[in-house]
């Protein structure tokens, strides 16, 4: 079980590296797809079918959009050139982040250790209070409905912005 998870994680890392390093954009998109599909299998193994469904579906959508964006270009190969300033900046700031994150995470309690009283309350009372058999939905739409509302609003506003930027007619 754990061996399989580690194998899938290694496969995902290899997919990421290939996607970054390969010169053909189409192959890069396919490698990104490998990462997403493996992630959905990992979610299935961890016992989270809800997230697995969302992951595989959203991955398909993103792949189709990415493919449409790359295939439309005439020349799908890119030639490698490295901006040393950008790489140096990224390295410096990731180093700063790592140091600060190490200091911050050291003070956190270890995984699962403070007994999660709120979630245990949800788990115990969830079915009786909401009568929804799918516990994930009862958290999403009842206990934590504010989060769902925020997510829906983010999607709405981002798509509004995308259409406003991309449209041609009516731009003044």
């Amino acid at each position: 079980m754990e061996v399989l998870l580690y194998a899938l994680l290694g496969f995902m890392v290899v997919g990421c590296i290939i996607a970054v390093e390969i010169k053909d954009l189409l192959s890069a998109v396919v490698s990104v797809g490998i990462v997403g599909i493996c992630l959905s299998v990992v979610f299935l193994f961890l016992g989270a079918p809800d997230i697995a469904i969302v992951q595989v579906v959203v991955e398909t959508l993103c792949l189709i959009i990415l493919l449409r964006a790359t295939v439309q270009r005439d020349d799908t190969t890119i030639y490698k050139y490295i901006e040393s300033f950008a790489v140096a900046t990224i390295l410096i700031f990731s180093g700063v982040f790592m140091v600060l994150a190490y200091r911050a995470f050291k003070d956190l309690p270890s995984f699962g250790h403070p007994l999660m009283t709120v979630s245990q309350e949800y788990l115990r009372e969830g079915l009786a209070k909401t009568k929804a058999v799918n516990f994930v939905t009862s958290v999403l739409l009842d206990f934590r409905a504010y989060d769902t509302l925020g997510e829906a609003t983010v999607l709405f506003v981002s798509i509004l912005g995308a259409i406003a930027v991309l449209r041609r007619r009516g731009r003044r």
Binding site: D50, A52, I53, V58, N134
Partner: peptide
């Protein structure tokens, strides 16, 4: 069936968009 089986509004909506796509 989002409140009974795995799924819900978001994946169902994405599947609808994929059908139209």
């Amino acid at each position: 069936y989002g409140h009974i089986t795995p799924g819900g509004g978001f994946p169902g909506g994405v599947i609808l968009a994929l059908g139209i796509m």
